[in-house]
Nucleic acid binder design. Structure first.
Length: 192
DNA sequence: ACAACGATCAACT
DNA sequence: GTTGATCGTTGTC
């Protein structure tokens, strides 16, 4: 369980940074489905990314969950991360693996899901989770409203990360939203 | 059938 | 700041 502190919006087929820019395909089909479902895809052959579908059927749009502040289940999360790391590379020496495990062991709680690939890893998500209803209170993966006594976060808008391929004006659109100065936000400090 | 390319991360110089 | 890991999806032929 954790608190979402960073998201990005991908608004539709006209958005050249969106997976919907080529129209409906087998991979992005979930984006064309009902709002409130998950769309999980694999990037760079290694990392899964969690999205929340946001528009009505036939209108492809989604929010990429880029960072979460882990609040419960932190140590299992950390252990799983260490296991993944140890299994990660073929050509890694025992010493390097031990050093990597040690780094993760020392990682602050709030940095365990600071990035879209890390969010999916922390919550054990892969593409098989696509389609799950995130608004169903009985779902094993779900969104919940902030608690009544929680302060409303101050939100900062920035351009989206890692979409240089999209070109102007899509690179510049301020469609990344972060909780200002929150230590779980990913990316360069200037964009927190 | 094939080649190129990512909505990334960690390690290294 | 740069680079390697790693593979499913997409566009092209």
């Amino acid at each position: 369980m954790g608190r979402i502190v960073e998201i990005e919006a991908y608004i539709g087929p006209e958005d050249r940074a969106s997976h919907a820019r080529f129209g409906e395909t087998p991979r992005n089909r979930a984006m064309y489905g009902p709002a409130g479902r998950a769309y999980v895809y694999l990037v760079y052959g290694m990392y899964d990314c969690l999205n929340v579908v946001t528009e009505t059927v036939g209108t492809p749009a989604a929010l990429l969950v880029r960072a979460v502040e882990p609040l419960e289940g932190v140590e299992p999360m950390r252990l799983d991360r260490i296991l993944r790391s140890t299994r990660r590379r073929r050509s890694v020496t025992g010493e390097q693996a031990a050093a990597a495990a040690d780094r993760i062991a020392r990682l602050p709680r709030e940095r365990l899901a600071s990035g879209p690939g890390l969010v999916a890893a922390a919550f054990g998500l892969d593409t098989g989770w696509t389609g799950i209803d995130l608004c169903d209170p009985a779902s094993p993966l779900r969104l919940e409203r902030q608690l009544d006594d929680e302060r409303r976060p101050e939100v900062r808008e920035t351009p989206r990360i890692g979409i240089d391929f999209a070109g102007s004006p899509w690179i510049e659109r301020p469609w990344r939203f972060v909780e200002r100065a929150h230590s779980s936000v990913s990316g360069p400090a200037a964009l927190r």
